[in-house]
Design a protein around this nucleic acid. Structure first.
Length: 493
RNA sequence: GACAAGGUGGCCGAAUUGGUUAAGGCGUCAGUCUGCAAAACUGAUCUUUAUGAGUUCAAAUCUCAUCCUUGUCUCCA
C-alpha cells in the first residue's frame, strides 16, 4: 500500500485554469520536467525560487511513494540574443567579453548553480540533460516538423510556421492568447528577417562566421532554437506525453506555448497533462532587475554581503520563507519578512527538538490522526505549504504543552506525531535542523561553561555586578546565555 | 496599447468552485520563569478583506466601474 493510493493530489493546471485531480499516466510513476537555468551568468534568485518550489513538489511526490523521474535541463547553447539575425547567442557573447571558451562559461556557471542548490538542500533531479548534448535529437525533431508541413527553411535557418499550425491547432491554448491579438501586437521588426511572419519562431539558426558554437545539420552549420531544446529533452526522457511540466510564470509565453506547438506538430499529440507555473519573486516590492540594481544573488543573500538585508540568512530560513507562501503567489523578499521567518523557523525547530525528548503518557489529549490528515490535505491541495506550516505550528504548541505537563500523548500517538513532523519538516519541506542551540566548537563550549559556572557563583553571592558583566560581555561577542529552570545554556549567532 | 494574474490586519502571508468566530508566522501587551533582564513557554490583542456600486437569505470569494502593482507581448525562472 503506497501513500499515494490514499492521498489524492489536486494540481492547479495552467492549461485549464483550475485545480484538477492528479492522475499520472502510469499508475505509481510520475514524469516531471522543469525548465532549467541558462548558464551564462550567476543563477538568478528568482530562478532559485522556482526550482525550490518544484523541489518541494518532487519531494512530496516521492514521499507519497511515487517513482518520479524528474528532468531538469541545463541550457548551455542557443539562446538568441535577438531576433534580427545577429546570430550571437548569450553564451557566445559572454565568452567574448571575458575572453574564454563558451564551454568554460558554461562549466563555471553550472558548477556555481549546483553549489547553490546543494547549499539550499535541493534533491538532485533524476536526469539533468544539457542542450548541447541533444543536438541530434533536436535535428530529428525539426525533420519531423518539416515533414508534417509546419516548418520551412530559409537561408539555412528553419522556422516554425505559426500561422499554418494555427489553422487546425490552437496556438495560444496555454497562454490564453489568440493569433489575431499577437499579430496585432507584434512590433514591426527591421524587415531583415527571413521569417514569413513575425510570430514564427526559429527551430534552427544558421551560424554567422564569427559564431563559435555551431553544429552541422541538413540545413546549415548552426545551432538549435531555444524552444526546441526543452521539447527534445523532455520527450526523450519522459515520452511524447508526460505528466507534469513546470517552470517560471514568465516562460508561459512564448516558451511553453512553443513547446506545445512543436510537440503537436512533430508527434501529433499534446506533450503535457499538467502545466505548473511558479510565480515571481520580488525584492522590496519591485521586480528584480539587473539594470535598476534591484537584484541580489543567492550567495549574497546567504553570506549577508549585500545592501538589502541586515544579516546573513541560513539556507533553511530561505526555504522556510519560500514555503510560507504559495508557489502560485508573487512573493516579496524583504528584510522584515526574512527576519520574521527566521524566528518562526527556529521556534518550529525548537519544538521538534523538544519532541525527540518527550515521554509518552497514558492517554492522548490531542487527536494526532486528525491533525496528520489535515497536513496531508494541505499538501494535496495544490501543494499548499503555508497551510501545512500552520498545522506544524499547531503541533509545536501541543508539543510545548506536553513538555509543561499540560497535555499528553499515548505512546502510539507520540510515535505518529514524531514521524509525521519529521516527514513533513525534513523530507517534504527540505528543511535542515540547524538548532539555534548550536554551541560551536567543543573548546568554545568548555570556555563558556566555565564562565557560566563563575557567573552562577557570583549570583549565589548576590554579586550581580559581576554576573551581569559576564552575561553582557558574552552577549557583545554574540554568545547569549539562557537561564532556565535546570540551569543556564548558551547559544551563538 | 493588448492579453493575463493580483491588491486581505503594524508587517509577511492562507482562505477566492459564495455559507460556522478571515489559518499560521512576526510584532505588540500581559502572565509564568528570573536577583533583574533576555531567551523560552502560556494567554490575549489588531483586519471586515484597494475604492465605489450591484447580484444574493448569505461575498474576501460572483458582476461592473475606478485606482494601483506585477507578468507576457523581443532573450528571461
Amino acid at each position: 500500500m503506497h501513500l499515494y493510493e490514499e492521498q489524492k493530489i489536486q494540481i492547479y493546471n495552467t492549461l485549464s485554469g483550475k485545480k484538477e485531480v492528479f492522475k499520472p499516466i502510469q499508475d505509481g510513476y510520475v514524469g516531471m520536467y522543469v525548465c532549467g537555468p541558462t548558464v551564462y551568468s550567476n543563477v538568478h534568485l528568482g530562478n532559485v525560487r522556482t526550482f525550490m518550489s518544484f523541489d518541494m513538489v518532487f519531494r512530496y511526490l516521492k514521499h507519497l511513494g511515487y517513482k518520479v523521474r524528474y528532468v531538469r535541463n541545463i541550457t548551455d547553447a542557443g539562446h538568441l540574443e535577438n531576433d534580427a539575425d545577429v546570430g550571437e547567442d548569450k553564451i557566445t557573447k559572454k565568452a567574448r567579453l571575458e575572453q574564454i571558451e563558451p564551454m568554460e562559461v558554461v562549466q563555471r556557471y553550472t558548477v556555481d548553480f549546483h553549489n547553490i542548490l546543494k547549499t539550499l538542500n535541493f534533491l538532485p533531479p533524476s536526469i539533468e540533460p544539457t542542450a548541447t548534448g541533444h543536438i541530434i535529437e533536436q535535428i530529428e525533431l525539426i525533420k519531423m516538423i518539416i515533414d508534417n508541413g509546419f516548418a520551412y527553411e530559409v537561408n539555412g535557418s528553419v522556422y516554425f510556421d505559426v500561422h499554418k499550425f494555427n489553422e487546425n491547432h490552437d496556438y495560444g491554448i496555454l497562454s490564453k492568447r489568440n493569433l489575431e491579438d499577437l499579430i496585432h501586437n507584434t512590433r514591426a521588426l527591421d524587415g531583415q528577417s527571413d521569417k514569413k511572419n513575425p510570430q514564427d519562431f526559429a527551430l534552427w539558426k544558421r551560424a554567422e562566421p564569427q559564431h563559435i558554437m555551431r553544429w552541422p545539420s541538413p540545413w546549415s552549420d548552426g545551432f538549435p532554437g531555444w524552444h526546441l531544446e526543452c521539447t527534445a529533452m523532455s520527450t526523450k526522457y519522459l515520452g511524447d506525453n508526460f505528466d507534469i511540466h513546470g517552470g517560471g510564470m514568465d516562460l508561459k509565453f512564448p516558451h511553453h506555448e512553443c513547446e506545445i506547438a512543436q510537440s503537436e506538430a512533430a508527434k501529433k499529440q499534446a506533450p503535457v497533462n499538467y502545466w505548473m507555473h511558479a510565480n515571481m519573486l520580488h525584492l522590496n516590492g519591485q521586480r528584480m532587475s539587473k539594470s535598476t540594481g534591484n537584484v541580489v544573488n543567492p550567495n549574497e543573500l546567504l553570506s549577508g554581503e549585500n545592501t538589502f538585508f541586515s544579516k546573513a540568512f541560513a539556507p533553511s530560513v530561505i526555504r522556510f520563507f519560500n514555503a510560507q507562501s504559495s508557489y502560485r503567489s508573487v512573493l516579496d523578499l524583504t528584510d522584515d519578512g526574512l527576519l520574521a521567518s527566521e524566528k518562526g523557523f527556529f521556534r518550529l525547530m525548537d519544538a521538534i527538538n523538544v519532541l525527540e525528548e518527550l515521554k509518552a503518557g497514558d492517554s492522548s489529549t490531542f487527536d494526532v490522526s486528525e491533525w496528520r490528515r489535515k497536513c496531508y490535505d494541505a499538501m494535496n491541495d495544490d501543494f499548499n505549504s503555508p497551510i501545512l506550516i500552520a498545522h506544524l505550528f499547531e503541533a509545536a504548541k501541543q508539543i510545548n504543552q506536553i513538555k509543561d505537563g499540560n497535555a499528553s500523548l499515548a505512546p502510539k500517538d507520540l510515535e505518529l506525531l514524531k514521524k509525521t513532523m519529521n516527514d513533513f519538516t525534513f523530507d517534504v519541506l527540505g528543511l535542515v535542523n540547524v538548532s539555534k542551540a548550536d554551541t560551536g566548537t567543543d573548546k568554545l563550549a568548555g570556555a563558556v561553561e566555565l564562565l557560566i559556572e563563575l557567573r552562577q557563583q557570583a549570583r549565589a553571592n548576590k554579586d550581580f555586578a559581576l554576573s551581569d558583566k559576564i552575561r553582557d560581555d558574552l552577549a557583545a561577542k554574540g554568545i547569549q546565555l539562557n537561564d532556565g529552570k535546570d540551569g543556564t545554556t548558551f547559544t551563538t549567532n
